[in-house]
């Protein structure tokens, strides 16, 4: 079980340390706090939109989950949202890089 293989199944997960129980982001094999083994579990939603912009009509933004997991994805429906808006993951995948679509919560 890994971040990439879970994403390919449409699941957004984060590694939580079996020893100190801290989450490690970005994905890794070992805990960045105590080097313990990580167990991947679903990321808790919703997250909060920190900032957004657009390119060629596609709106994208940074969303923060669980106070430390931040990732950039597209905003569903191309509707501009303001920072502070609560967001959910509408879909996710992995093809050379992670692909996320967020939707208003």
């Amino acid at each position: 079980m890994s971040f990439e293989s879970e994403l390919r199944q449409g699941r957004f997960t984060v590694g939580e340390c079996e020893k100190c129980h801290k989450t490690s982001w970005p994905p890794s094999e070992f805990c960045s706090n105590c080097f313990g083994n990580l167990k991947y579990r679903p990321v808790k939603e919703p997250g909060i939109l920190l900032e957004c912009s657009s390119k060629d009509g596609t709106i994208f933004g940074i969303v923060k989950f669980e106070d430390s997991i931040k990732i950039i994805g597209t905003i569903n429906g191309n509707v501009e949202q303001k920072p502070g808006q609560m967001m959910r993951v509408a879909s996710c995948d992995f093809d050379k890089s992670p692909k996320f679509t967020f939707t208003k919560s």
Binding site: P26, S53, K55, I62, I71, I72, S97, K99
Partner: peptide
């Protein structure tokens, strides 16, 4: 990977700008 599919530097540049 936290950049998702928005890997090119113009995307962090645009986020800083906005």
């Amino acid at each position: 990977v936290s950049r998702g599919e928005f890997t090119h530097p113009i995307f962090w540049g645009t986020m800083f700008t906005k």
